[in-house]
């Protein structure tokens, strides 16, 4: 028995909140993300029983406990692999993977890239706080070079991952970035992620106010946000700045920041979310905001592609084989050649 779509339409954000007490630190960015997901869920028109959240290990991976849907809090880095098996056999379910920068970029890095290239029709919410929170503050694969943490008192030696560029490299078909502090943007991206058929990767900048407070401050605080971020929209020129007075011009393959007083908006780089080449340039806007002449950090949907999903192909192959008629177990048991002993 299943809730009808009509009934699903009547659900509210509250219906998606489980009875569990939430255990994140007060002020953690995870709260906002949870709220946006719970808010978006009723709008998707899915019955609750058809939704599954699967997570690995880390602060963010507690997420499924707080959603009143089906959920699995699995082991470190493996939510992607578990979700793959679930989606292959149950393509009818809406599958959401909750992961962090340690979970997906470090211990689960392998499964992460393979999920993207296979293009299972699932959604990945990557809570990136650039730190290990649950283990109390070690640097992560997305922490900046030289980061001083408990495990790197002299500064980290690791060149950080750029998750969006990694996703492009792994042939992801939906590559997007948002942030905990911009609920409207996050909700818009979440809805598009759900609508996309294929692996939708949403990197969400999430503040860990206990171990890495302010890591994304320049992008999220009112005072600097407009100048440091670039909100990209399909078909729109790349414009940013408090006065909307700056833009990005693409000169051959080289992007340049220009002033709109010198260049007309029509001549700017117009974002085309289906242009892989340009998306590859755009995800590389990853400068340290402390560096002079850096590019603003883009938020939004970098790239989307319509490519067959693994789960569709998986099912189609089986259905194709089944066209040949009812399989006969007795025939399988007897094999090719038999003989009779009297």
């Amino acid at each position: 028995m299943s809730t009808s779509i009509q009934e699903a339409g009547k659900l509210s954000a509250k219906d998606f909140a489980s009875e569990q007490d939430i255990r994140w630190c007060p002020g953690c960015g995870d709260y906002s993300i949870l709220k946006q997901v719970q808010t978006v869920m009723p709008e998707l028109g899915l019955p609750k029983e058809d939704i599954v959240f699967i997570s690995g290990i880390g602060c963010s991976s507690r997420f499924p406990y707080y959603m009143d849907t089906f959920g699995m809090h699995s082991i470190h880095g493996r939510a992607t692999a578990i979700a793959s098996g679930l989606k292959a056999t149950r393509p009818d379910l809406s599958v959401w993977i909750i992961t962090g920068d340690g979970d997906s970029m470090s211990i689960g890095g392998n499964h992460f890239i393979h999920l993207l290239r296979r293009n299972f029709d699932v959604n990945v919410l990557l809570f990136n706080n650039e730190i290990y929170g649950l283990t109390k503050g070690q640097y992560s694969p997305t922490s900046e070079l030289g980061k001083v943490t408990k495990s790197t008192p002299y500064g980290s030696l690791d060149h950080p991952f750029n998750p969006m560029a990694l996703a492009m490299g792994a042939d992801g078909t939906f590559v997007a970035r948002s942030m905990d502090r911009d609920p409207v943007h996050l909700r818009t991206i979440l809805k598009r992620a759900h609508a996309h058929k294929g692996t939708s990767l949403v990197e969400i900048y999430q503040n860990c106010n206990v171990f890495n407070d302010g890591a994304f401050e320049v992008f999220t605080e009112k005072s600097s946000k407009a100048n440091e971020t670039l909100f990209i929209e399909n078909g729109q020129p790349l414009i940013f700045g408090a006065e909307k007075d700056k833009g990005i011009l693409l000169d051959g393959f080289t992007p340049r920041v220009v002033s709109l007083s010198d260049v007309s908006a029509n001549d700017l780089w117009i974002h085309n979310e289906q242009d892989r080449l340009k998306a590859n340039i755009l995800v590389r806007f990853f400068d340290d905001p402390r560096i002079e002449g850096h590019f603003p950090r883009p938020f939004g949907l970098f790239y989307v592609e319509d490519r067959f999903t693994y789960n569709e192909a998986f099912v189609a192959q089986i259905e194709q084989a089944q066209l040949k008629g009812e399989p006969d177990l007795n025939k399988l048991l007897s094999g090719g050649s038999v003989w009779v002993v009297e």
Partner: peptide, 30 residues
């Protein structure tokens, strides 16, 4: 070879993904 029996086989990226995908399938009732 036995897809006609509805068998799904998944050659995973590693041993861990292999068992984890099976756990996911089991969660879904396979």
């Amino acid at each position: 070879k036995y897809k006609n029996f509805g068998v799904g086989t998944f050659q995973a990226e590693d041993e861990i993904a292999a068992i984890c995908s099976a756990i996911g399938a089991s969660f879904g009732g396979a």
